[in-house]
Each structure stands twice: as structure tokens, then as C-alpha cells.
Design a protein around this nucleic acid. Structure first.
Lengths: 261, 261
DNA sequence: CGATAGTTTGATATCCTTCAAAACCTGTGG
DNA sequence: CCACAGGTTTTGAAGGATATCAAACTATCG
């Protein structure tokens, strides 16, 4: 894929090493892929991390219709944005991975149009609006960086639309795995081709617009082909390049490795 | 539906009447649903409108991979954002309607992850980056309003994901029509339950993740049920309430009628 | 150790696609 | 004014991908 990603990663690692290893500032690691953050900026983000508390899996952090009061930083664990239909169906519309600061701008809206739930036990920092506003005022670089992040989220949404709208079951799942692997790598949470994927088959189904049963059969297919391993949640992606190949994965939509023009 | 939408519309109409009818400032009309714009702000938007030039249908305004140089204001006509797949398939990921100023913030990204094409002949103002930046600096209200607009675009994207992922053909198309009708009404381009919809069946298919043939059959079904009328592009929605009912339309995701909290 | 959530399996049904061709508009040039 | 071309809509028949239903199996956890 984009050759620069590796160089970028090295750069990010350097930044991380520079700071206290006490605080795993995945957020800074992610944003560094885009913006040049000052030491001061990184300290600001550290301060957010320090607020993190533990929450159990499945917890609804925010519900549809809620008035947004806080932004949240996911320090560890996975979460998802989702919507429910009148018939009880669920559609996952985004995954939140460790190091994601979600909804720093949501205060512009009066009401949440979707819910956010934890998929695993997680450490989360709930950041009140005032602190976000203060951060934006004090650091234009961080303000830019978070807007960039929001635009990338939109780009991912568009790619998901393509995924559900125009690919078959196998390719949809393959494409999803490839994306998750790349995003996990951006925060240093992969080891080789593998990463810990806590999604259940039902989660995957609700993401790519399929039935859990059909996802099951698709995963079996992938296992047969040696693309993935592991039965229950915690898959291992064995062959990322081939997964990307079969799903015609084009990483440009993640906007990694791009400094602003 | 949200009862306030009607009151809102009246308010918007008042604003429009207030200004010169020479310039149809649909953009101001739309943004007024969210922000309190000063006369000065409206003049700024008028200035953008004045730059509009005519372009023929089907023109690609921006291609995937392009470096974003301009934002664009659609003064009349329809356009769409789309992505193409290696196999030639197309997925439309957004519609741009008259009064939409698209991508005022796209300069934060280095490269377009999708293309934008005109669906009809249209009047478009191409606005260079410098003018956008200048506007944001001079008017915090407009800056807020455009960020709000960007967040709403994201919300629409999420709802489209639900549409394709979890609804059947009939409901998908019904839901799409309901959304388009509401958005067209927000800029005063509906007359009763009807609005001029220039989409071809292939366009609709590429939007909701179906085949043009199946869309054809779905539309016939809708005609039989008296929900829509008109054969070739330029449908008329006959029964908006029922269309919303069958597709379980919840307008909250459009974030109309919401002042910022 | 039972309870619960997640995974797997098989049989059947259906929605939607694919392919192929005809009919229909709309604009264009002779 | 007609003929023709190209895009759009329509129709039919057949096949395939995915859903649905029901039930067994299997980890994991308190």
C-alpha cells in the first residue's frame, strides 16, 4: 500500500518514545499522521487520557436523541456507532478504535442521530464541552487536526456505502478487515498481519448489511482459504495483502500519510 | 413529522423576502434553518452566487485523486458525489441539490477520495480556497454554519448506510424520495407534495445499491400504489406522508429546525 | 455446573440479479 | 419533416446470492 505509511509510522513511534511511556497517547500517535503537534499539544491530549475510567462491555455511552454533552476519548477497547430500526434491526455505522476521540464537534448539533455503545470493556475519558472549546481556542493545530479527523470519518462512511452497496458478501467482509487492520496499525495495535478483533459475527453482520448466519459461512470460506484464523471473537488476519487484493482495497480513502496541502 | 419544520419554513421565507429577489440565495435560506446570519453574512453568500456560471449535464466537476482547489456552490441543478469500482460499478454517495455549498473544508485533505459530477445542466460557482478562508475569518457565524452543514452531511451518510444495509428495495427507494423531498422543501423547490426529480432509474439504482431493472419494477409498484407519477425523469411524489410511513421515515437525521445548543 | 451468548449446520424460500431484447423518448442532422 | 442514433425505460425468463427458520453445538462466566 502507500509506501509512505511505514515511514510515517516510524515518525509516529519516535514521537511516542519521546513522551512518557506511562501514558499511551494513541490519539497523539494518530493525529501525528496528519498534523505537526507541539509538545504542548501532546500534553493537552495527555491530560484527556488522564481522565479515563473503566466501563463494562455493551454499555451504551450515548443514545439516539440524547443532547450531546460530552466528547469521548476511547483509550482502550472498541466501540461502535449504531442505529436501530423500528423492526429491531441494527446497523453499525462506524467503529471507534483505541485512540479515537469521537465527536469533538458534536455540540453543533442539538440531538444525537445515532447511539454509541462499547463493544468490549474499555477505558474512556468523557470530556466536557468546555474543555473541548478551550482546547480549540488554545491550539489551532489541534483544531485543524480534529476537523481533519472528522472529514476522514466522512470518507470512511462513503467507502462503507460502496462496500454495502456494490460488493458481495465475501468482499465486504474482506474489505472491512483490511480497513480495520490498517486503522489498528495506525495506532500500533497490530503485530505483523494479525490484530485482535473482538467483533462477534453478529457485529460484523450488522456492519456490512448481512445476516449473522451468512457472515458465519463467509468466515468459514475465508478460513478455508487461509485468509484468517480463530473461531470466536479475536480473529487473526493471516494474509493481509491477499485480503486487500480480493477486496480491491484502495487505502486512499483513509487519508493516511497526507500532510495538509 | 417534526411540527417545527413548518414554522421554520415560514421564518426562512421571511428572510428570503427581506433580501433582493434578484438573487435566489438558496444557500442562505438553507443555513438560516440553523444559524442567525447577519445581513452582512447574506451579502457574502450573495457574492458567491454572483460568480455562478453554466455547465452542461454529466460534466465531472471534480475527479477522484484530484487535489482540491475549489469549493463549489450549486446555484441550480443537481449533482452527485460518486465512486467507481474496478469492475466499472458506480456508487453514488451523496446528492447535491440547489443551494448546497459543498466541500468548504475539503482543503484539509490532500486528495479527493471521490468524484463529483453534474446530473443536470447547472449553474455553479467555483470558489477558490482563499475566499473560503477569508469568509471563515470574517464571519464566525458562517464558519459555524458550514461546519454544521458538514456534520449534517455525515448524518445523511449514516442514514444511507442504514437504508442500503437494512431495508428492502421498495423501502430504500421510498426513503430516498422522502429525504429528497424534505431537502428540496428546505430550499423552497417543492410545490405541494411534488418536486422535480431529474434522476434516471440508473442513478437511483446506483444510490440505493440495486439494479436499474429492479428499480424499474419498484417504481412501477409505487405507481400502482399511487405513491408517485411520471415515467421518465421528473417524477412527482404524490403522497409524501404515505411514502414516509411505509419507509418508516424519521426526519431527525436531517437536523432541520435545530438551533445550536 | 447451569445459564447465556456466540457459533455452526441444514433445508427451504425469496429477493434481487443477470441476460437478452424490445419499446420508447428526445434530440440532431439531413 | 423525417429518419436515425443514443440514452432510457420496459418486459420476460432463469439463475444465484442471501435470508429465514429451526435446532444442535460450544465456549465462557458467575
Amino acid at each position: 500500500m502507500t509506501c509512505g505509511v511505514f515511514a510515517q509510522l516510524a515518525h509516529v513511534r519516535a514521537i511516542e518514545a519521546e513522551q512518557s511511556s506511562r501514558v499511551q497517547n494513541l490519539l497523539a500517535m494518530k493525529l501525528a499522521g496528519f498534523a505537526d503537534l507541539s509538545v504542548c499539544d501532546i500534553h493537552r491530549l495527555d491530560a484527556f487520557h488522564a481522565e479515563a475510567r473503566s466501563y463494562p462491555a455493551k454499555l451504551d455511552l450515548i443514545r439516539e436523541g440524547d443532547r450531546p454533552e460530552v466528547a469521548m476519548l476511547l483509550c482502550s477497547g472498541w466501540a461502535c456507532r449504531y442505529k436501530v430500526l423500528p423492526d429491531g434491526g441494527r446497523q453499525i455505522v462506524a467503529f471507534l478504535l483505541p485512540g479515537d476521540l469521537c465527536d469533538p464537534h458534536v455540540f453543533l448539533l442539538k440531538e444525537m442521530d445515532h447511539a454509541i455503545a462499547l463493544l468490549t470493556a474499555a477505558k474512556v475519558a468523557l470530556i466536557p464541552r468546555t474543555k473541548i472549546v478551550q482546547m480549540f481556542e488554545e491550539s489551532p493545530a489541534l483544531a485543524r487536526a480534529f476537523w481533519w479527523s472528522t472529514l476522514v470519518d466522512g470518507s470512511i462512511l462513503r467507502e462503507w456505502l460502496v462496500n454495502i452497496g456494490r460488493r458481495n458478501a465475501f468482499d465486504r467482509v474482506a474489505h472491512l478487515f483490511a480497513e480495520l487492520w490498517l486503522r489498528m496499525r495506525a495506532v500500533g495495535l497490530t503485530s505483523g498481519g494479525a490484530f485482535d478483533c473482538p467483533l462477534t459475527q453478529a457485529d460484523i453482520a450488522d456492519t456490512v448489511g448481512l445476516t449473522a448466519i451468512h457472515v458465519n459461512r463467509t468466515l468459514q470460506d475465508m478460513r478455508c482459504q487461509g485468509l484468517i484464523a480463530g473461531r470466536r471473537s479475536g480473529f487473526v488476519i493471516l494474509d493481509v495483502p491477499r485480503l486487500m487484493e480480493v477486496s480491491r482495497f484502495e487505502p486512499n480513502y483513509l487519508h493516511f500519510d497526507r500532510r495538509y496541502g
